[in-house]
Design a protein around this nucleic acid. Structure first.
Lengths: 226, 226
DNA sequence: GCAAAAGTGTTGCGAGTACACCCATGT
DNA sequence: ACATGGGTGTACTCGCAACACTTTTGC
């Protein structure tokens, strides 16, 4: 912060690993690159940060421009800046996790001929840049946050059954969980309230939940993650 | 990643919140800024990323140039990029946690008239830029990692007693922990081995520990964090 | 329509476990 | 001062099974 000499010109980009429940399994959104480098390869959406724009805003904007997806939950999780990760120039990518509730309407643009959901367990063997690493880290971060945040509910409608939540947790963790125990642990968080205008069995999250108010205590889930 | 138009020129900087046990309590390293903006205010060390340099390398280099501290553990934790966080220009700061084992020899430079340890619980009321927020987030991340990583051992010599570890954990969490329970939980991780060339009561970490191999299971510690 | 089936939420129980607390011992 | 173990009582976890209720399905 005190260096007054000239410094390197580095591009600042944002990338988004967008998760969604699609056909009852966890998918992420990939686009096909039109131009080199990695022309024809699949990549996660992303692009340059504009002037006077926050990182989260840039992530949402690029996602919308390239895939027509809007209204998603966005959360930054890591920044990738190894020299050589972009063969053209030195570039730093602030990577984000994106979660959306129901598969939104996709649309291609001039720049992105293909936009498609891919099952998390069957990704294309080669991806552009270091995107394989970014996706792996996004998934692992998503798993780690299940215990302490309500992040999984961003993959569900605002009203949901406990069975829905159970299914999402199983998908993210990649293992099956005893339902009764899951249900107890979930209600024990004290963050669920019955959905107002719905038939039975539907709940929604308490509004204005602060950070750290959601504690999902489940010992064996922690075992499995580690 | 596909945008070929010109884009904003954004500075990429790194900042380091360097933790250290100093006089048996947890301190962080601050420098006094010499030039505007925030001339005279305290700040965490940091600066611009050079050409063909990784982010971690930049963090280590800036830390050394500004404070003469080297050989520290560095780990990235968040990137701050709100417009306006630097009044001069749009700038993105990739923030890092730094941990060092014993208070190293400090040295000022032309650019940094003052380099000093500050107790984490008594920071100067005003800090440069958004550094207060950065420090708060670094501390909270450090706490969260105690359960699942060996990060706390980076604050200790390579050989240590269990009481040393106990003390560090208490400092980071800001609360006292029952020693007997702590000792049992720590040895239960199976990651400690007796120190080779030392008198009794000294241990060191198992070498080549992989990620996820350290699980510190302690219910009430989790209670307190949340 | 009606009965069977499937889905959903809830409760009880028992075996095993984790934990806090205190103290004793050896080094 | 440090590491270690014992002992105890409490509280909790988890998986399994059973049950009540609703919605859907099939005939």
């Amino acid at each position: 912060m005190t260096n007054h000499t000239t410094h390197a010109t580095i591009s600042v980009t944002v990338d988004v690993v967008l998760f969604c429940m699609y056909n009852t399994t966890l998918h992420i959104l990939l686009i096909e690159r039109k131009y080199p480098p990695y022309a024809g390869a699949w990549a996660i959406p992303g692009g340059f940060v504009d002037a006077d724009e926050s990182l989260a805003h840039a992530a949402r904007r690029e996602l919308f421009e390239e895939t027509n997806v809007s209204d998603v939950y966005i959360e930054q999780f890591y920044t990738f800046g190894d020299p050589g990760r972009d063969p053209r120039r030195q570039s730093v990518s602030v990577a984000h996790i994106g979660l959306c509730r129901t598969p939104p309407q996709l649309a291609t643009s001039d720049e992105t001929p293909q936009v498609q959901w891919h099952p998390l367990t069957q990704l294309p063997p080669v991806l552009a840049f270091d995107h394989h690493q970014i996706i792996a880290m996004a998934w692992s971060r998503l798993q780690a946050q299940l215990e302490s945040t309500t992040i999984a509910f961003e993959l569900l409608p605002t009203q949901f059954t406990i069975a829905d939540v159970h299914h999402v947790y199983q998908q993210i963790l990649g293992e099956s969980l005893d339902f009764a125990t899951f249900q107890r642990a979930l209600t024990a968080t004290g963050t669920l309230i019955p959905a107002p205008d719905q038939t039975q069995h539907h709940f929604c999250l308490k509004p204005d939940l602060g950070a750290g108010q959601f504690i999902f205590r489940w010992r064996d889930a922690r075992h499995a993650i580690a």
